[in-house]
């Protein structure tokens, strides 16, 4: 094991320690240093150069990124999650022939699916799903996310919300919390389209708020265009008065005339 690898290994230990004791600042710092060090390993993606330490380097890099992903969940930083996940992904997809699969692989993939669901990026969700093998789909972590998505699509929002209790991994909790909000937004969107107005009560039930106050807060924060009056919520519909299609008579006349002229000119 050469010096660099040792250095990375040591740094990694410190990072893990910081991460476990929830010292996020120093962990982020260490992580950043680690990533810079990793760029010097040529055996890592995208170069995949052959080197004697390739296996160790790949393994440790994968570990580092896995921990980075977990850390980002802990710090509730979705951007960092996405970033780290994408950097991690080549280790899963492209190194299968060289490394033994990581035990963390499916939980992290499931997390990512969940994140996409939370962010309502359904297309990408399915893209990711397509990339998984059928055996992977049997994995509880993945299965959980897939079931959630199905419920979500069916509109069985209560099932979505109740699924929080059956998380397969403790890191999932954070996203499940966020999911509630996503569901609510979805409902709000549908209501807007479906109704002209709703009574406060109905609206509260529909949006699964326990108190009117929470409803008002939600409206003022996320949907300032809604109007609350006479005990009802009015959804201001963007009434696009479709402009009646006018016949471009002038243009047509011009065109016809020019055709006639061109015909004259045909030699």
């Amino acid at each position: 094991m050469d010096a660099k690898l040792t250095e990375v290994a040591q740094l990694f230990e410190r990072f893990k320690a910081a991460s476990i004791r929830n010292d996020f600042d120093s962990a982020a710092n260490l992580l950043s240093q680690l990533k810079v060090l990793l760029t010097e390993f040529k055996s890592l993606p995208p170069l995949f150069e052959e080197s004697p330490n390739a296996i160790q380097e790949l393994t440790i890099a994968r570990d580092i990124y896995e921990h980075a992903v977990v850390l980002s969940v802990k710090t509730e930083d979705q951007d960092a999650f996405e970033r780290d996940f994408f950097q991690l992904k080549p280790y899963y997809t492209d190194t299968g022939s060289r490394l033994p699969p990581s035990p963390q692989e499916y939980p992290i993939l499931g997390l990512n699916l969940l994140r996409l669901l939370v962010q309502n990026r359904i297309a990408e969700f399915h893209t990711e799903l397509e990339l998984l093998s059928s055996s992977a789909l049997e994995n509880p972590c993945i299965k959980h996310a897939v079931e959630l998505e199905q419920s979500f699509m069916e509109g069985a929002y209560n099932r979505v919300l109740s699924a929080r209790r059956t998380v397969p991994h403790e890191t999932y909790v954070y996203f499940m919390d966020l999911l509630a909000k996503t569901v609510r937004d979805e409902i709000a969107g549908c209501s807007e389209k479906a109704y002209d107005y709703l009574s406060i009560n109905n609206a509260r039930q529909m949006l699964m708020f326990s108190t009117d106050k929470e409803l008002y807060e939600y409206i003022s924060e996320d949907h300032p265009e809604w109007e609350v009056k006479n005990g009802s919520v009015f959804f201001q519909k963007v009434k696009e008065s479709a402009p009646s299609k006018e016949i471009p008579s002038l243009q047509l006349i011009n065109q016809t005339l020019s055709y006639a002229r061109e015909l004259e000119r045909i030699v």
Binding site: K89, P90, D94, T95
Partner: peptide, 18 residues
């Protein structure tokens, strides 16, 4: 020899701060 199948990792790296 493994080849990389996607550039998403690198693209993600662009958003790093360092």
């Amino acid at each position: 020899a493994a080849t990389v199948s996607s550039a998403s990792g690198l693209l993600a790296m662009l958003n790093e701060h360092h």
